[in-house]
Design a protein around this nucleic acid. Structure first.
Lengths: 355, 355
DNA sequence: CTGAAAGCGCTTACAG
DNA sequence: CTGAAAGCGCTTACAG
């Protein structure tokens, strides 16, 4: 057995130290590039590290120096994708992840995903578990109560996304109000539509609330009527959008001239349901979305919507968090601009160039 | 100042213990549901936990019990999206993430994303950093050398994805060979195409190698000729696919009747470049993809491709890893079935139902 | 059922 | 420049 005595688990810093004939302190310094150790020491340590395939344990490092270099992110996300085309819905989330990931990478942080299902119970404890493994937390919308967020925020810095600022936590969001106002102006002023419907998102969503409020207010200013309320209650999903349309038909309600949907997924479902009833979009009823997910331009008709800078949203959330973690200071509420994307579902005729 | 003496950082288990008037051991037991503590003890601890907003530190737990409940995942992913429609390319990765995430959630694990850019240097050290923060590692394709993988695998269990098994590590992949063979048979036997081209992926990719080999072999058996080689070298990106087509035109090479692309992105670029030259797809040249990304069915023409069960790939990777982590045993090479998806880019006429 | 104490693998003042 | 030692916040035998 030529094998030198084999330690049970993976190599530790002690193994490296003894192999290199130095103290663990020196190994640590070499690995951290601290206090320029002597070249000979350095070499021996590096050699031992490589021979042993040594990898520093992150938990031990984190416990010792109080920094995990991990940012936790918790989103809701469904387990399945029941509606045609909806397999792309989560793209929304994934683009945000991508933004967080890219920003985190620049700072040497990794991203810990702790998603929860829509029907998961015990969300607060899931969130707490993620918080315990991270230096900071990014939380989507209203995943847990404001009280829970405030309490969590006393343990780790917390950034909420696309929500409304909560005491103790920071917030990053898109400018729902300006986006909806521009959209409504386009529908009413440009197209002359006098009646609008707001097919809403989840009732507990601050984004949804902000959008509903903005449409109401802007429509009033433009002189259009807007319908909303229970019969118009969706849930951000395509199925939810289709349900509302079908319910409206069931109740024999007259449809407004244009339907402003809380997000693109909802619009997708609404358009689908309308088509099945023989209603033409946009000739009979115009439909608009919010988000500008990639599939939006591929719909029939191509969707007029409001583009949110999702990747930037994620990146900004990380930067705010990082600033808080490293300096203790950060903005409490950051608002990102949105952009009105006019395609054809509003009634416009797009030029067909290329794609 | 009615404020009871405020500890500096977040509350620790000691704070909870002293507030509840018990030992830290009891607090730990209550929190872990061990050895059924007395109801009174339990209550006092829980009350203190809630009053203090206590969250257990994950690093300390991990260090103490040797389990982080974190699975690390490292992918390559670009920083930008230069080609039209390519913003969806990363969907491929994100669906895998989703599969990993869902499977991990079931086991109480979280997912640590440690993506690296295509031009990042020091990938091995990034990977090692992630490995140090996780109980196991999922690595995409050939991110680091086989030697590095083997070395890493002596520290934490490693699963490679969509690759080729490496000594010491486990592997999960899709059945490239069967997929390509079915596709080639369809093109040659059903459509009667006699000449094929293989527009390849990254040259260092085992998936790419497997696909090239399969097309070569199946074409020979079916009696078709296949072109490949330097002039056909792509890189899995749409831009790469377009470049090859443009290069072929530049060299005044006669195009084969059908072009089998290494993946959907490549096909997207190829179709785009062909259209710009006035070549009709599929009337003049048929084009096929591999992956079946969501946008594939929205292309003009809708893309005939091979669907890989990406989400299942991710979920399986996690399960294999979990099995290794918890039982010490796991399959070394798992192969998942694929499915030929026939649309129109191969020359078939699809029925237009619904979408 | 409960507490005192060891130990997980690092980092970092503190001496030398 | 380097080493001995304390300490990060938990979990878990080990006694009682």
């Amino acid at each position: 057995m030529p094998e030198p005595k084999r330690p049970k688990g993976p190599a530790t810093i002690y193994d490296v130290a003894s192999r290199a004939g130095v103290s663990i302190a020196s190994v640590s310094r070499v690995l951290n590039g601290q206090r320029s150790p002597r070249a000979a020491t350095r070499e021996r340590v590096l050699e031992a590290v490589s021979e042993l395939g040594f990898v520093r344990d992150g938990a031990a490092r984190a416990l010792s120096n109080g920094l995990k270099e991990v940012v936790g992110v918790v989103f809701r996300r469904g387990d399945e994708t029941p509606f045609p085309d909806e397999d792309e819905s989560f793209l929304f989330i994934d683009v945000i992840y991508r933004g967080i990931d890219l920003a985190a990478r620049r700072r040497g942080f990794d991203v810990l995903m702790g998603s929860v299902g829509f029907n998961d119970e015990n969300v607060p404890s899931r969130v707490a578990a993620v918080a315990g493994k991270a230096d900071g937390l990014i939380l989507h919308d209203r995943m847990v109560s404001a009280g829970t967020i405030t309490r969590l925020a006393s343990t780790v810095p917390v950034v909420t996304l696309a929500g409304t600022p909560v005491r103790g936590a920071m917030n990053v969001r898109c400018d729902n109000e300006l986006g909806i106002r521009a959209l409504v102006r386009h529908l009413v002023k440009h197209h002359g539509y006098k009646t609008l419907g707001y097919l809403s998102g989840r009732i507990d969503s601050p984004d949804n609330h902000a959008r509903a409020k903005a449409i109401d207010s802007e429509a009033a200013e433009c002189g259009a009527r807007v319908e909303l309320g229970d019969a118009w209650q969706g849930d951000y999903s395509a199925a939810g959008g289709a349900n509302v349309i079908n319910g409206l038909f069931g109740a024999k309600r007259k449809l407004p001239r244009a339907i402003v949907c809380a997000n693109d997924q909802t619009a997708l479902g609404a358009i689908h349901a309308l088509s099945q009833r023989g209603i033409r979009v946009p000739q009979d009823v115009a439909v608009t979305g919010f988000d500008d997910v990639p599939v939006a331009r591929h719909l029939h008709p191509p969707l007029t919507t409001v583009r949110q800078p999702m990747q930037e949203l994620g990146a900004t959330a990380f930067e705010v968090l990082y600033s808080k973690i490293s300096t203790g200071k950060a903005d409490a509420d950051v608002v990102l601009p949105v952009e009105l994307i006019i395609r054809e579902s509003c009634g416009c005729i797009a030029r067909k160039d290329g794609a």
